[in-house]
Design a protein around this nucleic acid. Structure first.
Lengths: 229, 229
DNA sequence: CACAAAACTTGATCTGTATCAAAATGCAGC
DNA sequence: GCTGCATTTTGATACAGATCAAGTTTTGTG
């Protein structure tokens, strides 16, 4: 069983396509391909022309920008089911960010032509693409607000609260950081050092208990109160 | 001649609709309405349910978030031809920002139902909506980069350079600020005081000459060099 | 299991930017 | 052209967060 033959079942599970016209799958699958990206390798670089849409099947991809002095700032971390690269695709611009695998990752690549064709012919699919873009647009707006309005500590608290599963109503919650702390720090626009200190201080205030990547929140409402206060 | 009768010709000129199927205009126009918003009045507030899409015909609208301590942060300033409110519309979420007229403004309001219907039936229109969203998404990403990577001075320089008309290749350029300085400062995530000082310092370095809202850039390449250096 | 490399923590210091307070300018309406 | 309010500028001070320089822990790998 080669890689191509697995494509139909792989793309079927994607939120972007799920429940749509069945013939759409076949047309898409014919032009889709699987990309295996080892940890640390790039999917595309800032400035590269757009070849299509990428969807994460397995693993993690970070979108980042180079700072000029050799460092990097992480814009977004994407896990399974997330689609990225649409903006450049539909605008016909080169990519404005670099996409790099945080761990060994598997992606589906959908060609530009297939995307444009299906958007033109299938209204439901177009709506999915729009919804996906709208969601990411909102997330960017929210990030922007966080950087402009919140202190470093507040951004960390905000981040921790977002890591709590939605339906969870417990007072005590254990959160496991989904990525290396350096990547999270960068996404929160903090230096790794500062992030580390903030976690220590939150620990000292008994708002959280840190041990490695495991963080226990003993009193969620109290932590939430840090944001409004 | 009442306001309704002017709608068809008004929406015809919009970038979002221009050059599309002619019957689309008629269907749209039937459900569109004109909004006159006086300076300082809000179009919608953060938390309001979405009623549709707004397009600026005349004037200026700023998107902002409240900081809690009574102040506000400007996310974006939109002029004629700009469409906003799509994200909330397509996600079915309440608005995540407040929209307020910076000056007396005229908007076209397109209903949610009309938008969804046309996206489903007209692939070209869907593509326009996607492109508009993609462009705004990219602008947010760029803003995010600016806040994360650049100093206040660099953000101001970046802003000034973006104010130069595209096709202009002159070395000496006069720019007139399109809004009050306080609004610009807020959008650049600076205090008004800091923004003022930056302009003064750039003036002292002979990179610009400020007189009120008029700013002369005597040597565009040299100003541009501030970003990379 | 051991060792090297990567990730994380801690400390000391320095800088960009906010904040508060007040003066100066610009502008709209009478 | 004066009056009064909004906008902008300037000054003095304070603080959040960056940077540089060690350490310490964790992790992957032969």
């Amino acid at each position: 069983m080669n890689a191509r033959s697995k494509i139909p079942e792989m793309i079927q599970g994607l939120a972007l396509l799920e429940g749509l016209d069945s013939q759409l799958y076949e047309r898409m699958a014919a032009e889709a391909s699987i990309q295996k990206v080892p940890r640390g390798a790039t999917v595309f670089r800032q400035g590269d022309p757009s070849t299509g849409l990428h969807v994460v099947i397995m693993g993690q991809v970070k979108l980042l920008m180079n700072t000029g002095n050799g460092h990097e700032k992480v814009i977004e971390v994407l896990g399974p089911n997330a689609a990225f690269g649409e903006a450049a695709l539909f605008l016909g611009h080169p990519h404005s960010v670099t996409a790099e695998a945080v761990m060994d990752t598997e992606l589906v690549h959908l060609t530009r032509e297939a995307l444009l064709r299906e958007v033109m012919t299938d209204g439901n699919f177009a709506l999915r693409v729009i919804t996906n873009l709208a969601r990411r647009f909102n997330r960017r707006t929210e990030d922007l607000r966080n950087y402009m309005l919140f202190s470093g500590t507040q951004r960390v608290v905000c981040f921790l609260l977002r890591e709590i599963p939605d339906e969870c109503e417990e007072t005590v919650v254990d959160v496991t950081l989904s990525t290396r702390k350096g990547v999270i720090a960068s996404k929160l626009n903090l230096t790794q050092e500062h992030f580390s200190r903030i976690l220590r201080d939150l620990g000292a205030a008994a708002l959280i208990e840190v041990s490695g990547a495991r963080i226990r929140i003993p009193d969620v409402p109290r932590l939430r109160a840090c944001l409004t206060g």
